[in-house]
């Protein structure tokens, strides 16, 4: 499977990718995007099987990215990895069609719990 990791922080993209490996998901292809707009382009070009996106990014936020994808008819499985996990944001994410939110800081165990059903 191909996973798109979208986060404006280069170090956080590395941490997410490292944690995917530590969680046992090392055999998947990873593509990266530094903001929501780049992620939208990448979804169209790379056709990932899963998007793991930060919420707060320049150019296009994670929730704007999700809305744009769904408005264009794209149903790629989408989850947020974000430092903010308020009830309001969870409700917005679910209403927009996201699977779930993973809050930062996270561990490999969190990734296994949340992603095993999708990534196998």
């Amino acid at each position: 499977m191909k996973i798109l990791v979208a986060d404006d922080s280069r170090v956080m993209r590395q941490i997410v990718i490292r944690t995917l490996r530590q969680a046992g998901f090392e055999d998947h292809d990873i593509v990266e995007a530094p903001d929501g707009a780049a992620a939208q382009t990448s979804v169209n070009e790379e056709k990932p099987d899963l998007v793991l996106s930060d919420w707060n990014m320049p150019n296009m936020s994670g929730i704007e990215l999700l809305h744009a994808l769904r408005a264009a008819g794209n149903t790629v499985p989408f989850a947020f990895v974000t430092s903010e996990c308020s009830d309001e944001m969870i409700a917005k994410a679910e209403a927009g069609g996201a699977l779930f939110l993973i809050s930062k800081p996270f561990t490999a165990e969190t990734f296994r719990d949340k992603l095993s059903d999708i990534l196998g």
Binding site: S9, V11, S83, C85, S86, S103, K104
Partner: peptide, 21 residues
Amino acid sequence: DALGELANVLGGNVKSVLPSP
């Protein structure tokens, strides 16, 4: 990048226990 992300993660968690939205 690293120090900024440290502040971002700490800030996000602090924000979750402060008055919203």
